[in-house]
Design a protein around this nucleic acid. Structure first.
Length: 816
RNA sequence: GCCGGGAUGGCGGAACUGGUAGACGCGCCGGAUUCAAAAUCCGGUUCUGGAAACAGAGUGGGGGUUCGAUUCCCCCUCCCGGCACCA
């Protein structure tokens, strides 16, 4: 009886070896090809969940595979340590956010260690440490100098009972999550980063990023939303200032029958002063949360202001409305409405009895009734005076020319992308390094005074930031004039920290610069792995920050992540695992029961990495069973004694067949992991090969040599997924050098050769038989053999053969 | 509402560039081993008909292109992710 499989012993031993050998600590080595493998770093919530285990395992498999390809692999880990949950925990449990966060980091780190990830822990980062955030404060002051940051009013969700700003997540059905009070929109001054200055570059570079999924690139393109249109002015009756609007459809201009402004627009305020009805409507508009999803799905409401705009072409008066679907912070806070040719305008006009005018006709000449059905496609202009008969492109040109000549409008490029508001009215974040002086206005904190350290010993109540009440933090001398001044108490959006951490791993201890020369060796990240939920915001902000750092002379790299893999969620009973749903499976319990290798293997086997993974306890047991079979197959083989050297020329047919399977499998798994990131099929192929070995009964002479080759291949190829058991089995197979220093196995092309192949025979596309043909048979021979098949004859007999299609190596289709 | 993705046996999934639908695993059924159970091993397993050979149907729904469609095109349904202050 051979040694039983004891995961806890095997795993402790493998991890002890890696720790003692410092296997995963790497320095810059210009003679070796580097590979930087990174996972989106976790928020230290306290416990590892299955989603973490999944993404960390995917990344670890890639890192270990690349190492076996001979690359110099860096895989670091750290903590996205600022954020709301720490403040919420502080309110609930009276524990300072810093203390709570550091304790969580310690617990999660221990859980990660148990899973055997190949991390270089010497580079660990926690974003809540002043040594880290001082550099983003520094970069912010550089951006200030360049005019890449600015301050302007913008909208927040205000809870009138708790007297605090709420995140969108904290607004439930328009009410504050703790107070249940109706949330109001409120404008406050906030800091913005000019990501729009990089809009074109961020958009255009997407075309040169083959390592990113098309879906993510498409989402980013749509998010940036570049459009070409015209900006034009409407005079307002009785007003000096014209109303400026942007449109991508100037061809529909003659169909404008009303205009609308935001509730916060000065013209709305002016009308409200003399009309209590309008004032009440404006107040109602402001009782609505600030998210776009709410804006787009709510009932579209509006009121006429009793003010007219003058149509710039016809001179007609068109009524001006105030509407809840126009936002002051988007564009100019005003829109022109063309009900005949815009879905939303059409419905609004129908509801309020506003005129609908057809000015575009279908290009194919067909008739439409614009009162019955909106027409949004491009077509030919009608009812548009001198522009009648023009198509879309000609009309846009003619109308744009007209406006540019008269000086009342211009062609312009617009982006959906807005500048990034980075101010948060919260305590647990990196302080924004600004000092407000009555004389000098907003002054950035000088480099020598950085970092602005966040006080960690605080009492959090939930009603506003505790920084506001800390005189020793707030009161400060103006760096410019020395007079008494006040420190900014807002902190950065936590996306700021996560927009550059990937570069800092290259030189986490650098206290002279944000990035030093080591970043030139390691960046960009070769493989980045994380959740699809970050497809837009985090990834776009990181691309922006990388460029800001580049333009500051810190790096030559423009794109931070060469290859991107977005993994799916872990589900149980069809829903995301969460405390609310009570469907959480604790990784720690499973590791205690089956070991880390079983959990890792199941994660990789159960679903493709990009798709959601349905949790299954039986599936985990299946992975455990497989590892036991694997263990016993190798140990029994090893314990049967020495193996003769393989002589490929002396093999019988069965031995050749197993050897062919071994080398086919090496090629397949290499392709699955290296090219396709298809880890589930790689595991399946390993299982198939092991099944073939277990079915192979002859255990003498060359058979043992062929089996030995197959088992070694399985041990090597499973090692990225289940590194611990493979470490032990490699040793059992008689190797003195540890598995972690081995290379990926090589395909022996000569083992793949075949004399005869089997082809499928179809009649009219339906499978009717199979024939064995010589590998080098020509088309006529194949046709003859196919038609001669008994079952094929039953379907072909007595009918005329119209066509025969031969797909080499695959099938024959006979069309009768 | 808008943008992106998904749907294949009882279940998770495979089929990579339009060419054998269901690899691999789970579950289930039958058998071996056992006093018995667990564990392990062997065999079977899309559905319908048939003892079998084999035949018919079949990849969310409806249409189309093709010798051939899970794969390409059009329309629709449901589910998931994002929508700028969750991270």
């Amino acid at each position: 009886m051979n040694t039983p499989y004891k995961p806890d012993v095997v795993e402790a031993e493998a991890q002890r070896h890696w720790n003692e050998a410092h296997s995963f600590e790497v320095d810059e080595d210009p003679d070796k090809e580097k590979f930087y493998c990174l996972t989106m770093f976790p928020y230290p919530s306290g416990k590892l969940h299955m989603g973490h285990v999944r993404v960390f395992t995917i990344s670890d498999v890639i890192a270990r595979y690349q190492r076996m390809q001979g690359k110099h692999v860096l895989q670091p880990m750290g903590w996205d340590a600022f954020g709301m949950p720490a403040e919420n925990a502080a309110i609930r449990n009276q524990v300072p956010p810093a203390e709570w966060t550091y304790r969580n980091i310690g617990e999660m780190r221990a859980q990660m260690d148990r899973l055997g990830y190949a991390y270089d822990w010497s580079r660990e980062i926690a974003t809540c440490k002043p040594e880290y955030y001082r550099w983003e404060q520094w970069l912010f002051t550089k951006m200030f100098e360049k005019g890449l940051v600015y301050r302007k009013n913008s909208v927040v969700n205000w809870d009138p009972v708790d007297q605090t700003v709420l995140a969108n997540e904290q607004v439930i059905d328009g009410r504050g999550w703790r107070s249940d009070a109706l949330v109001e929109r409120r404008e406050i001054p906030q800091w913005f980063m000019k990501i729009t200055a990089y809009a074109d570059e961020l958009l255009e570079e997407l075309d040169r990023m083959p390592g990113w999924p098309e879906s993510v690139k498409t989402m980013q393109r749509n998010w940036i939303g570049r459009s070409e249109g015209v900006e034009l002015s409407f005079e307002v009756a009785g007003e000096g200032e014209p109303l400026t609007v942007y449109t991508t459809r100037p061809d529909t201009l003659m169909g404008v029958t009303y205009m609308a402004v935001a509730a916060e627009h000065p013209l709305a305020a002016k009308a409200a002063a003399s009309d209590p009805g309008i004032a009440a409507f404006i107040e109602e508009c402001q009782k609505m949360d600030a998210s776009e999803a709410t804006l787009e799905t709510m009932e579209k409401k509006g009121m006429p202001l009793g003010i007219s705009a003058i149509h710039p072409l016809s001179g007609e008066e068109v009524p001006l409305w105030v509407a809840n679907f126009v936002l002051m912070t988007y564009g100019t806070g005003a829109v022109m409405a063309v009900p005949g040719h815009d879905e939303r305008d059409w419905e609004f006009a129908k509801k309020h009895g506003i005129e609908i005018r057809q000015v575009i006709a279908p290009a194919d000449g067909s008739d439409i009734d614009i009162q019955e059905q909106v027409f949004v496609e491009k077509g030919v202009l009608v009812n548009s005076g001198q522009w009648d008969g023009l198509d879309f492109a000609a009309a846009v040109d003619a109308i744009a020319d007209h406006f540019e000549k008269t000086g009342r409008g211009r062609r312009t490029v617009n982006y959906r992308l807005r500048d990034w508001g980075v101010s948060r009215q919260r305590y647990w974040g990196a302080p924004i390094p600004i000092i407000y002086c009555d004389d000098c206005d907003a002054v950035p904190v000088p480099e020598d005074d950085l970092p602005v350290v966040l006080p960690e010993d605080v009492h959090v109540t939930g009603a506003g930031s505790p920084l506001k009440d800390m005189a020793e933090f707030v009161n400060v001398a103006c760096p410019n004039c020395g007079k008494n001044a006040r420190r900014e108490t807002d902190t950065f959006d936590t996306f700021v920290e996560s927009s550059w951490y990937f570069a800092r791993y290259a030189c986490p201890d650098s206290d002279r610069a944000m990035l030093d020369e080591r970043a030139a060796y390691w960046t960009p990240v070769d493989q980045y792995t994380g959740g699809i939920e970050h497809a837009i915001l985090h990834l776009l902000y990181s691309r922006f920050f990388q460029r800001v750092m580049r333009d500051e002379g810190l790096t030559d790299v423009s794109e931070p992540f060469t290859n991107l893999l977005t993994q799916g969620m872990v589900l149980k009973d069809g829903a995301k695992m969460s405390k609310n749903k009570g469907n959480i499976v604790d990784p720690q319990e499973l590791i205690a029961k089956y070991g880390a290798d079983t959990v890792r293997l199941f994660m990789m086997f159960a679903a493709p990495a990009e798709q959601s993974l349905e949790w299954s306890d039986e599936g985990v047991q299946g992975s455990y069973r497989f590892l036991k079979r694997f263990w016993h197959a190798v140990v029994e083989h090893a314990e049967a004694g020495p193996v003769a050297a393989l002589d490929a020329s002396a093999l019988d047919d069965e031995q050749k067949a197993l050897r062919r399977k071994t080398h086919q499998t090496i090629g397949k798994i290499d392709d699955d992991i290296g090219r396709r990131s298809s880890f589930n099929t790689a595991v399946a192929a390993s299982m198939e090969l092991l099944n073939a070995v277990n079915r192979f009964e002859d255990r003498s002479g060359q058979s043992r040599a062929v089996v030995h080759e197959a088992l070694e291949a399985v041990v090597l190829m499973l090692s990225p997924m289940t590194p611990h058991i493979c470490h032990a089995l490699w040793k059992a197979l008689g190797h003195a050098t540890p598995l972690i220093d081995q290379r990926w196995p090589r395909v022996d092309e000569s083992a793949l050769e075949l004399d005869t192949i089997e082809l499928v025979v179809q009649v009219n596309g339906k499978l009717r038989g199979r024939v064995a043909v010589p590998a080098d048979a020509d088309k006529d021979t194949i046709e003859g053999l196919a038609v001669a098949d008994d079952n094929v004859q039953r379907f072909v007999d007595g009918k005329a053969i119209r066509k025969v299609i031969v797909v080499p190596g695959r099938l024959v289709n006979i069309v009768v």
